[in-house]
């Protein structure tokens, strides 16, 4: 998977988690959505690890520094090179 494909899939999963998380805040007893939330988090964690192994850390103090201090490396999210068309 290219950087772009991997990032896109991860962004999709993370967005689902954000949206379902907000829903669960006002529906904390919805066990079906809680199960769905946990499934998405599991899938996102696998993709996140894959992305970080290949393209560097995504998180400011949660990610391992695997090949030197890659945290500072371009591209940053506001740069075009970090983005793609849907």
């Amino acid at each position: 998977m290219t950087r772009e494909e991997l990032l896109k899939s991860l962004m999709e999963l993370d967005f689902m988690a954000v949206d379902i998380g907000l829903f669960l805040n006002t529906h904390p007893n919805d066990s079906v959505m809680i199960e769905e939330y946990n499934k998405i988090i599991t899938a996102a964690q696998i993709l996140r690890e894959k992305f970080e192994n290949m393209y560097g850390p995504l998180c400011s103090f949660r990610s391992y520094a695997q090949k030197g201090w890659e945290w500072i490396d371009n591209p940053w999210p506001w740069q075009k090179e970090a983005n793609f068309d849907l």
């Binding site: 962004m11 995504l58 103090f61 949660r62 945290w71 075009k80 970090a82 983005n83 068309d85």
Partner: peptide, 15 residues
């Protein structure tokens, strides 16, 4: 807070 090095939704403006 922690920072995620990605946007919530992509922005790719060419012009």
């Amino acid at each position: 807070w922690i920072y995620e090095k990605k946007l919530e939704f992509p922005v790719n403006i060419k012009k």
